[in-house]
Design a protein around this nucleic acid. Structure first.
Lengths: 250, 250
DNA sequence: ACGGATTAAAGGTCTAATATTTAGTTGACT
DNA sequence: AGTCAACTAAATATTAGACCTTTAATCCGT
């Protein structure tokens, strides 16, 4: 049964007019099924929390083998669209993809392309000023508390490179989170680790630079506290470009 | 054979000190293999263009079944780390993940979370001014030609909403490409389609707005031609925030 | 030297059995 | 009645092996 994929050699009646057709993409069985299911999900006919039919049912209704059905489910799982649980009452439950899906993808992109330090810093320079502005606009009191807490931690750890850099990272991420923009958060989470790795070096963080960093962080924190978007943005912009230039020289 | 996953009930000698251990993640066979192979790839022991052993060989050397081996390969394929070809001399070839991998992931994220229009516009507002600045800094002559070409197309199509919006999209993407920053390009490609969809509406693009848009696009194009990064950035910033405010009112 | 048939090597698919995990159910012992 | 252990059932996870399809190389006749 199941002789799928009949490509059908399109009889010789070739009206040889200038039809140009690109390379024909031949989908695999599992892909076809995955596409259908994905369509159901993003199309809204299956919503967050709903259960998919179990594998045997899908096998029957699709006419494919269980392996192909499973392949399809694995694809959706890797895309973060379903979560599959083993055992009685297990199965595949629809869920919304989280930021971690993006983070994984972008991290792979960065590490396997050996993205240059300058590119990372440029990307950060794009995201952070806007994030700071939005944070000043939309922060809650908890957001502010978190930012201040991370700032204090960094000040306290100024003599310990590890603690300093960790605090630095946390402070920046706290601000981005306070922007309440999921896309910016996801993008920043994606690159922050790489930025951290790439600046994790004593020579890139001499004491006088750390002093400088702490001082401007303090001013940015204040701007966010006072809910002054323009000032937060301006300062953050200066901060990241200053550090970028410092890196550019070394 | 192969009785993996013995969790081993940790004898009763529970030193009940306050050790807290999170939920134990039990990996699947395919995941373990995928992790190993991924490590080989990003670790550099397998580089771009190399062939992986074929499925039967991997089955032997890993001690897993062919299905599990194939599952692992599928994961890597979905991550964009390998490309698999059928047929004699086929197999799995290592490749660097492209921007399309990021685009797919982020697009799913956006559409399945029904990301709000304002968030999209905010994210764009973060990326584009920096991209314009970098474009002014690093553009080649071909980059410039492309930007000008897209601008002309947009001017020519100003009375046709479809052509106008398409030209708009193309012009913006041309600039981002001219930044020569793969991360920014990937991020922008990821959201541009969604931004396009969300602004594809006659009422959001009345004639007087189009005129305004064309005029400022022209000035930005000129700034990039003259390689004036600060000006390009300033204008682009004004452009996107102006449009954001216009959207905010409607 | 060309072009069609053959063949070999790879991935793609199907089937069916077995293993493992998990949640509910039952039942004996408090 | 309550509780914990053993059992059972329902689902996914894994294995095994056969067969199908695609693709490139090779052979061979013209």
């Amino acid at each position: 049964m199941a002789q799928h994929r009949e490509q059908m050699a399109a009889s010789k009646s070739s009206a040889s007019s200038s039809l140009k057709l690109g390379p024909v993409k031949i989908p695999r069985a599992a892909e076809v099924l995955a596409n259908q299911l994905r369509e159901e999900i993003v199309g809204g006919r299956l919503s967050d929390g709903d259960m998919l039919p179990n594998e045997r049912e899908l096998t029957e209704s699709s006419g494919l083998s269980r392996s192909s059905v499973r392949d399809a489910l694995r694809m959706l799982e890797l895309e973060g669209l379903i979560a599959t649980k083993q055992g009685r009452n297990g199965g595949s439950r629809v869920c919304k993809p989280g930021r971690d899906t993006i983070v994984k993808t972008v991290s792979l992109f960065i590490s396997s392309r050996r993205t240059r330090r300058v590119s990372l810093v440029e990307a950060r320079g794009a995201i952070e000023p806007t994030a700071a502005m939005l944070a000043a606009k939309h922060r809650t009191d908890e957001d502010l508390a978190r930012i201040q807490e991370k700032h204090s931690a960094m000040v306290a750890g100024i003599d310990d490179l590890d603690r300093f850099l960790r605090g630095n990272l946390d402070w920046h991420m706290a601000i981005v989170h306070a922007s309440h923009n999921d896309l910016l958060i996801a993008f920043m989470e994606s690159i922050s680790h790489a930025v951290y790795d790439v600046t994790n070096d004593e020579t890139l963080n001499p004491p006088e630079v750390r002093q400088q960093v702490v001082r401007i962080h303090g001013r940015i924190t204040d701007a966010i506290e006072k809910q002054d978007p323009a000032e937060a943005k301006r300062l953050m912009e200066r901060h990241v470009t200053a550090y970028a230039e410092f890196l550019g020289m070394s």
